[in-house]
């Protein structure tokens, strides 16, 4: 395997891991709350910006800054659920969806107001790339952390959902909310969990994304579109599907552009092409059940 291909695969894995964290939250929130949270990308952006504030402006070290940023975004996520989504929980799912679109636009505007339209950066010269596999791949420490941590988080989330009582109750609410209530599962608590976990994963993705690219107000929208495509690619509501979909999108972006198959100006179109192709050929997603609604 040529060094170029190895490097492109590594880059694709890094992008895929960051998309996967966002897609995981998106698919979990969809499964339990029943709507696509359009402002989820803004949680990623806010995660990146709050980390930047703590690390570069306040001057904390990387780990305390990251911890503070993640905590802050989790609180924001919980507040959003309580203030904006809980009051319309039993309404038509279009209503929370439209609210989330409004939130997304509002949060982009807030980022513009606070930090302006100019791009900002987190990374500095102290991050030197390391060579892996005998020099075949160059990787920054943050990329290695991103890949390892997101894999651990994905495994952890899966274990949480399948092995713990709270995790199982979240899947129960996703599967049949009415029956969950009949057996005393508190739906408020379930929503708190799912929005908290989703926001936390988005914030972590945002912090790593801040090391990979510039911070700009629209960064959340861009990764949210990729995550959204990943979720549809895998099958809406499916955890495994979202993760595999995310890596497929990350890898195809990196390889198609890197190998010159598609001009780099078209990078942003790749998730859409995959998305449209998928909807035409297999609308239920890679892991979806045909003609069966995922929710009752």
């Amino acid at each position: 395997m040529s060094e170029l291909v190895a490097q492109l695969i590594w880059n694709g894995l890094v992008t895929g891991a960051l998309i996967a964290l966002v897609a995981l939250g998106l698919t979990l929130i969809y499964g339990v709350a029943g709507f696509i949270q359009f402002a989820h990308g803004e949680m990623v952006a806010l995660g990146a910006y709050s980390f930047m504030v703590m690390h570069k402006l306040v001057g904390w070290d990387i780990f305390p800054s990251a911890f503070a940023a993640v905590c802050f975004i989790i609180i924001v996520g919980l507040l959003f659920e309580k203030v904006f989504f809980r009051p319309v929980r039993d309404a038509d799912p279009m209503i929370p969806l439209v609210i989330s679109i409004g939130l997304s636009i509002g949060l982009q505007a807030l980022i513009l107001i606070f930090w302006g339209p100019n791009i900002l950066t987190i990374s500095d010269t102290s991050f030197r790339s390391l060579s892996l596999f005998g020099g075949k791949i160059l990787a920054t420490p943050s990329q290695i952390w991103a890949v390892i941590l997101s894999l651990l988080l994905m495994i952890g989330t899966t274990i949480f959902l399948h092995k713990t009582k709270i995790g199982k109750s979240l899947r129960a609410v996703a599967s049949n909310r009415n029956v969950a209530e009949v057996f005393g599962i508190n739906v408020d608590t379930s929503m708190t969990w799912i929005f908290g976990v989703g926001a936390g994963l988005a914030a972590i993705s945002g912090i790593f994304l801040g090391f990979e690219q510039n911070l700009e107000p629209m960064m959340g929208v861009i990764i949210a579109i990729k995550a959204f495509s990943a979720v549809i690619l895998g099958a809406v509501g499916s955890v495994r599907g979202a993760i595999i979909g995310a890596f497929l999108i990350g890898l195809s972006e990196s390889l198609l552009v890197g190998l010159g198959i598609i001009p780099s100006g078209f990078t942003a179109a790749i998730p859409f092409v995959i998305l449209i192709g998928m909807l035409l050929l297999k609308p239920e997603g890679l892991f979806g059940k045909r003609f069966q609604s995922l929710r009752q």
Binding site: K168, R171, A172, A174, S175, N176, N178, V179, A180, V182, Q296
Partner: peptide
């Protein structure tokens, strides 16, 4: 109580 109709968690 066993409710009527869709009274299980089909995905579990």
């Amino acid at each position: 109580m066993v409710t009527q109709g869709k009274n299980i968690f089909p995905d579990l």
